[in-house]
Simulated assay, not measured.
Amino acid sequence: MTTIIDVAKQAQVSKSTVSRVISGNGYVSQESREKVLDAMEALAYSPNLIARNLQSGETKTIGFLAHGFIDPLGIFLESFISIAKKYNYYVTLYFTGSDKKKEIEALNQMKYKQLDGLFILTRANKWEIIEPYSIYGPIATWHRIDSERIYSSYVDHYSGYLRSLDYLFQRGYRSIGHVLGNYENLNTKARIKAIDDFHQTKNLSFNDEWIFYDKSRLDNGLSIAQRWHNMTEKTDAMAFYTDSVAAGFISELQNLGYSVPEDVAVIGFDNSEISRLMHITTVDYSIKRQAENSFIYIHNQLNQEKIPEQEMNVKLIERQTVPLRKL
């Protein structure tokens, strides 16, 4: 079997020079690099990455865990991969389909030294089951979680959602429906508090029928549109926790003969591509920087560095689904 020593002899350079060419780390002159590459080709040498990983104790690979495709995934994954590449890390994507066993299998990749760290976009198991795996490598998530063992890049959904409701109020809307995520999530609880505070501050009446909970995101925009259609007291605006469900709601309302925003105003949350394509007013809560900060945390933990995190801001993006309403 051809070794790195054989390549060094063939190229007439040192073993360390060959190592720097293979790893991409450290300075190598163009002349020496070409000699090494020519020698590798002549000897049909292929670096033994597995052996190298075992020796160094790292794979330079971060796992990215999700149930499947959801609307923010594209933005988040693209940003995460981009910054990982900047620091010479690879990203492996795991789709679990909400299967708890498959999620544990992915977590075990850290235990068996096949991943250096893990980012969780969506989870199947409870946090108390996931947390112990942090002894094998750093774990980050964008979910809001109070944990000393798992990093969270969350933004304050209370202030972001309250801003959405204030905006709707300023535009003339008084009966507002709310489409929220899983009730157990801390972000959902923060939004519920924002709803309570908003109605108390504005002295507005509230109907329990105006709150909808969505656990899966799959086709729920359609079912919420049908429920809105059957309401005896329809809201004049709907605030969604994610753009993809808002888009499904708008699409189904059109099938039912309604028009947005003429019949009901809609505001989303994410500022994802679908909101831009469908001209949905939405809230941008720094998904890209959430992704960057999650990777920075993992990188800092693995390399004992202190790269500063990016500042995150919440911005309202005005488009066409929340027109000014005459009272």
Rank of each mutant, 00 (worst) to 15 (best):
residue 271 N to G: 08
residue 264 V to I: 11
residue 221 G to Q: 09
residue 268 G to P: 07
residue 211 I to M: 13
residue 217 R to K: 14
residue 231 M to T: 05
residue 221 G to E: 03
residue 196 D to M: 09
residue 216 S to M: 13
residue 252 E to G: 04
residue 252 E to W: 09
residue 274 I to A: 04
residue 271 N to F: 03
residue 238 M to W: 01
residue 228 W to L: 05
residue 207 N to R: 12
residue 273 E to M: 08
residue 240 F to D: 03
residue 269 F to E: 01
residue 271 N to I: 03
residue 258 Y to W: 12
residue 202 K to T: 02
residue 239 A to I: 02
residue 275 S to G: 11
residue 223 S to A: 11
residue 203 N to P: 00
residue 263 D to Y: 02
residue 242 T to W: 02
residue 205 S to K: 14
residue 211 I to E: 07
residue 252 E to D: 09
residue 215 K to C: 11
residue 203 N to K: 15
residue 214 D to W: 07
residue 247 A to C: 12
residue 239 A to E: 01
residue 247 A to L: 12
residue 246 A to V: 08
residue 207 N to P: 06
residue 239 A to P: 00
residue 217 R to H: 14
residue 256 L to A: 03
residue 217 R to Q: 14
residue 194 A to T: 15
residue 255 N to C: 06
residue 221 G to I: 06
residue 207 N to A: 11
residue 209 E to Q: 14
residue 228 W to R: 01
residue 268 G to L: 06
residue 216 S to Q: 14
residue 201 T to Q: 14
residue 199 H to Q: 10
residue 273 E to K: 11
residue 245 V to I: 15
residue 199 H to C: 15
residue 193 K to D: 11
residue 228 W to E: 03
residue 208 D to E: 15
residue 201 T to V: 07
residue 219 D to G: 11
residue 210 W to T: 00
residue 231 M to P: 01
residue 228 W to K: 03
residue 222 L to R: 12
residue 198 F to G: 05
residue 264 V to A: 02
residue 233 E to F: 06
residue 226 Q to P: 01
residue 230 N to V: 07
residue 211 I to Y: 06
residue 208 D to S: 15
residue 221 G to F: 02
residue 248 G to T: 06
residue 245 V to Q: 07
residue 212 F to W: 04
residue 212 F to G: 01
residue 255 N to D: 08
residue 195 I to D: 10
residue 225 A to C: 08
residue 229 H to C: 02
residue 195 I to T: 12
residue 243 D to Y: 10
residue 212 F to T: 01
residue 243 D to P: 08
residue 235 T to V: 09
residue 195 I to C: 08
residue 192 I to K: 15
residue 217 R to Y: 15
residue 255 N to F: 03
residue 232 T to V: 10
residue 196 D to R: 14
residue 263 D to S: 06
residue 266 V to D: 00
residue 212 F to N: 01
residue 236 D to Y: 01
residue 216 S to K: 15
residue 259 S to L: 07
residue 220 N to C: 13
residue 266 V to M: 01
residue 191 R to C: 10
residue 231 M to A: 11
residue 196 D to N: 13
residue 267 I to T: 00
residue 251 S to W: 07
residue 248 G to D: 07
residue 249 F to I: 12
residue 241 Y to A: 14
residue 204 L to K: 09
residue 222 L to W: 05
residue 219 D to L: 12
residue 232 T to A: 13
residue 236 D to M: 01
residue 213 Y to E: 02
residue 242 T to S: 09
residue 197 D to H: 15
residue 218 L to F: 13
residue 263 D to H: 08
residue 242 T to E: 14
residue 260 V to F: 02
residue 233 E to K: 13
